[in-house]
């Protein structure tokens, strides 16, 4: 019997914060790709569904020293001690061993929101409202992504539907492994500045693996030990310093943009 094993990958991305201009194309592309419904009229910035949010952070200085950085934040796809996986009472969250992607299965989710409390990156979103699309807009929904009902949690999965499509294409031609060019998340595609490099971090030839090891690459909250697969990079030291949580309250107050 031939083995059904595929080469295991550990997908990740490196976001160049020096290139990001905060346009939000990534967030829009993400919402379209993943069937995120238009926000309810009474939703606030804390009750919306933003799998990928772009956060503006300032260096807290006065003009003319004032500088800002835009930080796109999605699920950081933790590797070790994934905080959300172990807490889910009913196995609605797991890690796909073939891609390293942390899943969220809406049809299994109870909506207890324990995973949201557990996530240090606030990358998980709850459906506070019923999803509704304007008449006729359902026709634009992506069939590779299920829509979520009210009362469940959802989050970024590196456009897993695109990986499935790439996988099916390879399989139709008898190949087990996908062509890396066939699998790129929507945000990566959409970025006009090409600020996001995506790929298999375990493949030393991939651009993402190389970029993740470059000098000014870093990850947020690394000391929590969750081993995120989303890297950032910046040549500006003050931006890199945002990665750690160790800070006095005053400094934190000042840097809020």
């Amino acid at each position: 019997m031939e083995s059904a094993e595929t080469t295991l990958a550990r997908y990740g991305m490196v976001i160049d914060l020096d290139r990001c201009n905060g346009c939000g194309a990534c967030a829009t592309a993400c919402a379209v790709e993943n069937n995120v419904p238009p926000a309810n009229t009474s939703a606030t910035e804390r009750t919306g569904l933003t799998w990928l949010r772009v956060q503006r952070v300032s260096n807290g200085r006065q003009f003319p020293q004032n500088r800002a950085v835009y930080i796109p934040i999605s699920c950081q796809q933790c590797g070790e001690h994934t905080p959300c996986v172990s807490v889910c009472p009913q196995n609605a969250v797991d890690v796909n061993p073939e891609t390293g992607v942390v899943s969220q299965v809406p049809a299994r989710c109870l909506g207890c929101r324990y995973c949201m409390a557990a996530c240090p990156f606030h990358a998980r979103y709850f459906n506070w409202f019923d999803p509704k699309w304007p008449d006729g807009m359902e026709a634009t929904l992506n069939p590779d992504v299920s829509i979520r009902m009210r009362g469940v949690v959802e989050k970024c999965n590196f456009c897993h539907g695109r990986w499935q499509a790439a996988k099916a294409k390879a399989a139709a031609n008898g190949a087990r492994d996908i062509d890396p060019a066939d699998y790129v998340p929507a945000c990566v595609d959409a970025c006009p500045e090409k600020a996001i490099t995506f790929g298999n971090l375990d493949d030393p030839r991939s651009d993402a693996a190389r970029a993740s090891k470059s000098a000014n690459a870093f990850r947020f909250l690394e000391k929590l030990g969750t081993d995120p697969k989303v890297y950032y990079r910046s040549d500006r030291a003050w931006v890199r310093r945002l990665a750690d949580a160790d800070v006095t309250a005053r400094e934190s107050e000042a840097s809020r943009g």
Binding site: M1, S3, A4, E5, T6, N91, A92, V93, D94, V95, N96, P97, E98, T99, V101, S103, V105, A107, R108, D144, V145, S146, N157, H160, G161, Q164
Partner: peptide, 13 residues
């Protein structure tokens, strides 16, 4: 039975 590596996302979207 055929050694397919499974996780939620194998069959769910």
């Amino acid at each position: 039975a055929h050694g397919v590596r499974e996780s939620c996302l194998t069959c769910h979207k």
